[in-house]
Nucleic acid binder design. Structure first.
Length: 647
DNA sequence: TCTCTCATT
């Protein structure tokens, strides 16, 4: 076991008494990093590990002949940290310090400290597997265990073998997964840097509650009645719960005696799908004499830091996605959080001063929670990952050196799909089609739709559809406005289904003058942010197609080529109508229903293909297009051989 | 016969 070092980078034999900023540990820290290939750094909130450490390394000459990469799981983090460091160093952003995220690259050949998203560094590795330009690679927020961070773990570990003594790796983590990281990297040291976080008192309930929603309601009102000034942050699992409490809290507050009435509580919702102008409300101070209650999804755990919060209310649940390799379905379910997540939530009460976290469960329940959230690599479809590993010359992904191995069945399912898509040959080697697919920054099934679209004479349309499918939903339905929304969307409707309906929206969107687009979307209950992103993705994909010398062609008003292109990528999600109006998947014989958000909901086409199988209250097909049953065998002959029967 | 945690290339 490596030594655990704490505080001032001296040996910790128990308690840490000194609380020093990272600057005072500078020389000891540099010495340790020089002495080891890989260093694990545990830095608390406010320790300056992301901003100051790269500067120390640069000043110490450790980037000589190259540069320092610092990865972040989120683009906003990469951008804001780069800004701060450029300011601290007194240089212009994009000179010595820059960032590189999708659609936005401020770095230049002189850049010595590059902040990137972890996904961006994975993309770079696909082009230059040795990542030659970097002398130091720092993987920040490694405890979040995003899919890309996990890929990078394996990439940099192997890189150190190939680039003997020429690459330093520093893995930075906020929690106590450090021993696991040290074990995987056979790292010499774990360094612990103390941060500047205020103390947070953690309180538990003596007895479990029947309804956590009701418990949140009571907790908020009780804090408001009994605790000194300070805003309240409550974690809920989704939009519906937020809507419910946004309505109930003022109602109940109004009924309570001893309170000054509902005007003293300001309720502010925050979740990712909320339009940006409404999201901005969490950053505004509540009016004098009132208290702000923020009702948040887990967006407020890491992505958004709300100022002024002194009280956290944590019911202990989260809506989490998981993927079944057996059925190929994603499911979205409310599950208990992990201990690490509970600590992260509580920490949100101590950003500006001492705080209190109210955990709405028993202390024993906390002890029984899993230590950490299951890493993303074990919760998602691995099609893209397997394709990327093949590009990185990993012949047997099943035996790859993962920190946490995905299940063999999930890997095999992904490899089988790549075979059926034609990205791999029967030997498991990348085909020329597979090499084209890996260049495109989209899911492999959509890469196939795009490349088939070109052959079928509809690459223009396929580009738009694939770009739109790679963003958040374009149709935004506010509660109780379903009827007027349906009315507003009528002009775009296509009886073929959601893909071509969105294509129609996109075409109309582009015809609107740029300054008018936001308003145009608001009037039609369309998500401006998603459409704008689709425009960016489309442009980026068009660049890639140009480099791949794929022709740009349009099929005009004929939709059949588009439907066939969709089927050529999405054939594992082809389903036939049954007498009870559900659908049977051809690949697995499961039954599914068309999701209520689909324009085909209630319309009963004979045969459908769709993007995604999602299990919530039942199994739903999302983003659906109608196809001719007779097209199935030719779309994927190998796949449907013997399976289609009398279709 | 009624729904959408959060990120990313």
């Amino acid at each position: 076991m490596p030594e655990v070092i704490s505080g001032t980078v001296t040996k910790a034999s128990g308690d840490v008494t000194k609380r020093l900023p990272i600057a005072e540990t500078r020389n000891e820290l540099l010495q340790l990093i020089r002495a080891h290939d890989t260093t694990i750094l545990v830095g608390e909130t406010g320790s300056g590990k992301s901003t100051q450490l790269p500067q120390f390394l640069l000043q110490a000459g450790m980037a000589r002949g190259g540069c320092i990469a610092v990865t972040q799981p989120r683009r906003v983090a990469a951008i804001s940290v780069a800004r701060r460091v450029a300011q601290e160093m007194g240089v212009k952003l994009g000179s010595e310090v820059g960032y590189n995220v999708r659609f936005d690259d401020t770095s230049c050949p002189d850049t010595r400290i590059r902040y990137l998203t972890d996904g961006m560094l994975v993309r770079e590795a696909l082009v230059d597997p040795d990542l030659k330009r970097y002398k130091v690679i720092i993987l920040d927020e490694a405890h979040e265990r995003t899919l890309s961070t996990d890929i990078l773990f394996a990439i940099v570990k192997h890189l150190q073998v190939r680039r003997q003594k020429d690459l330093k790796v520093i893995v930075m983590s906020a929690t106590l997964d450090a021993a696991k990281f040290a074990d995987f990297f056979r790292a010499g040291k774990i360094v612990h840097i103390v941060g500047r976080q205020h103390p947070v008192q953690v309180l538990y309930l003596p007895e479990p509650v029947d309804s956590y929603l009701d418990a949140v309601l009571k907790a908020v009102l009780q804090i408001h009645a009994q605790q000194p000034a300070g805003d309240i942050l409550a974690f809920l699992t989704g939009q519906e719960e937020i809507d419910t409490l946004q309505r109930l809290i003022p109602e109940r507050a109004g009924q309570m005696s001893g309170l000054d009435g509902p005007e003293k509580l300001v309720i502010v919702p925050i979740f990712a799908a909320l339009p940006p102008e409404q999201q901005a409300r969490v950053f505004e101070d509540a009016p004098a004499g009132s208290r702000k209650v923020i009702l948040a999804t887990n967006i407020a755990e890491t992505s958004i830091t709300v100022p002024g919060v002194r009280y956290v209310v944590d019911p202990g649940f989260v809506k989490a996605r998981s993927y079944s390799s057996r059925t190929g379905a994603d499911s979205l379910q409310v599950v208990p959080i992990s201990k690490a997540q509970a600590r992260q939530r509580s920490g949100r009460a101590g950003r500006e001063g001492p705080g209190v976290a109210f955990r709405l469960y028993k202390e024993e329940t906390f002890q029984s929670l899993p230590a950490a959230t299951v890493p993303e690599i074990q919760r998602v479809s691995l099609t893209s990952l397997m394709l990327q590993l093949k590009q990185l010359n990993v012949q047997q992904p099943q035996n790859f050196d993962f920190m946490d191995k995905p299940s063999t069945s999930a890997m095999l399912r992904a490899l089988e799909l790549l075979l059926a898509l034609g990205a791999l040959d029967s030997e498991g080697t990348l085909t020329s089609l597979g090499r084209q697919m890996v260049r495109l920054p989209i899911e492999p099934v959509f890469a196939k739709v795009l490349l088939s679209g070109a052959e079928l004479g509809c690459s223009q349309e396929a580009l738009t559809i694939v770009a739109a499918a790679s963003t958040d939903p374009i149709f935004f339905t506010p509660r109780n406005k379903q009827d007027s929304a349906a009315q507003a969307w009528k002009p775009f409707f296509s009886s073929t289904g959601d893909h071509i309906t969105k294509l129609n929206v996109f075409k109309s969107f582009l015809e609107v003058r740029k300054p008018d687009r936001r308003r145009w979307c608001a009037e039609r209950m369309l998500n401006f942010r998603s459409l704008k992103k689709a425009v960016d993705i489309r442009a980026q994909l068009a660049q890639h197609l140009k480099q791949l010398k794929v022709p740009m062609v349009s099929c005009g008003s004929d939709t059949a080529p588009i439907q066939r292109a969709l089927l050529s990528g999405l054939f594992i999600n082809a389903a036939i109508l049954l007498p009870d109006n559900t659908y049977r998947l051809q690949a697995s014989s499961q039954t599914v229903s068309i999701h209520p958000s689909s324009v085909l909901h209630g319309r009963k086409p004979r045969c459908i293909v769709f993007d995604e199988l999602l299990r919530t209250t039942r199994r739903y097909a999302r983003n659906v297009t109608a196809v001719e049953p007779s097209w199935l065998p030719e779309a994927a002959p190998m796949y449907f051989h013997g399976k289609t029967g009398n279709v």
